[in-house]
Amino acid sequence: MLALARLLIIGFVVLTVIYLSLSLYSRSVRRGKLEREWDEEIHTGDRDAFIEEGMRAYDGSLRKKLILGVYVLPLVTVTIIIYLTNFH
């Protein structure tokens, strides 16, 4: 059981690093898109308020929740491997 605990802890740390990097990257891409959209198409009103509203919409969106798949995918893969190896 100690080996399992070790695997889970190391896996959790690594996946958290990946999750944070992916999350920050996704936010910066979304912010870049909002800025470009305002600069090219809208040009009226408060730029910062538009971007903040867009970012708040992003925070509640499905896309942001999908990044949690970084935790789910390895767990599912390991479960499938265990099933195929041990229980045919």
């Binding site: 080996a3 070790r6 390991v78 491997i81 190896t85 041990n86």
Partner: peptide, 15 residues
């Protein structure tokens, strides 16, 4: 191979 490397997660050696 258990929980270690390579990640085959093989537990059923006796089987």
């Amino acid at each position: 191979t258990g929980w270690g490397w390579p990640p085959y997660f093989k537990f059923d050696t006796a089987n």
